[in-house]
């Protein structure tokens, strides 16, 4: 599933419309919008540093992400540049604590990259150019990214989280109206949705690849456990043995079937079961 988080409704509206998301009325603490078949869940977190962490924890506890799910935080930010583009954040610094977080940058994209500093309240006044070492860098400022990363890291790995930001101002927050925020996101919607669609494709692909049916020889197991009089340790060992056989494409069902035909199986007691298990292991390798 694709978990989207936006601070305000005006930042989320273009995405809600684009993906035809429907409001989940069972969710009362936060506004949540769903599309069952598209597998998208968008949450409006509220602004500041506490509300987004609560929103991520709440939604991800209710709808547990899989190993292939993605989280994306989309919103406006302030910056020391006028650049009218979408930024993908490669470094997130939490201003009050000085802690820094690094989402993995594994996927190709068409965005600019920048670091972002999460501040507890809106910046007022113009932002001064930031100098780091001997390099001048674009620096973004928001109020949510570090909270979303930290809360998200309980459910997602760093390769599953993306932070997409569009500049709305240079620190003159009084000019940032809901309409302006919505327009900024709307104008960049094709680029944003292209990236989000890519995340969904990868999610689907990885899910198919990891289909447990390919590697879990479950149907045979219960009968074998019983017929071998397996102890707990033998059960674990047998499960591992057959898991390997399935992955290495060893025809273990035929081997087991032959052992039934040769009347090694079923065994009459635990002692015979142990001997039979050793024979089975020998035949499988």
């Amino acid at each position: 599933m694709l978990y989207l988080f936006a601070a305000t409704h005006c930042e989320a509206r273009p995405l809600i419309q684009h993906y035809h998301l429907k409001k989940d009325i069972s969710q009362t603490q936060f506004q949540v919008f769903f599309h069952e078949t598209a597998n998208i869940c968008l949450t409006i977190t509220g602004t500041g540093m506490i509300a987004p962490a609560a929103a991520v924890a709440c939604i991800c506890t209710r709808h547990r992400p899989s190993a292939h799910s993605f989280l994306a935080n989309i919103g406006i930010c302030a910056s020391n540049t006028e650049k009218n583009t979408v930024f993908l954040c490669n470094k997130i610094t939490e201003e009050p604590t000085g802690r820094t977080f690094y989402p993995d940058m594994l996927l190709s994209h068409s965005f600019c990259e920048a670091k972002i500093i999460t501040v507890p309240k809106p910046l007022s006044g113009r932002i001064l150019e930031q100098n780091t070492s001997d390099r001048k860098e674009i620096c973004l400022y928001d109020m949510e990214a570090s909270s979303i990363y930290q809360a998200g890291s309980y459910f997602f790995g760093p390769h599953q989280m993306s932070f997409l930001k569009i500049i709305s101002d240079n620190g003159d927050v009084q000019n940032v109206t809901p309409k302006l925020a919505e327009n900024r996101i709307e104008k960049k919607l094709p680029e944003i949705t292209e990236y989000l669609d890519m995340l969904q494709t990868i999610d689907r692909f990885e899910k198919q690849k990891a289909d447990p049916k390919e590697s879990e020889p479950e149907p045979l197991l219960e009968k074998l456990y019983a017929d071998l009089h397996c102890s707990h340790a033998m059960r674990l060992s047998l499960r591992q043995q057959l898991r390997y056989c399935a992955l290495a494409k060893i025809d273990y069902p035929s081997v087991i079937q032959n052992m039934y035909l040769e009347q090694f199986l079923p065994c009459k007691d635990k002692k015979e079961g142990k001997r039979c298990f050793e024979e089975l292991k020998r035949r499988l390798l």
Partner: peptide
């Protein structure tokens, strides 16, 4: 040393 990294994807 971040937690939750995916060695294969990296």
């Amino acid at each position: 040393c971040r937690k939750g990294q995916n060695y294969g994807l990296q």
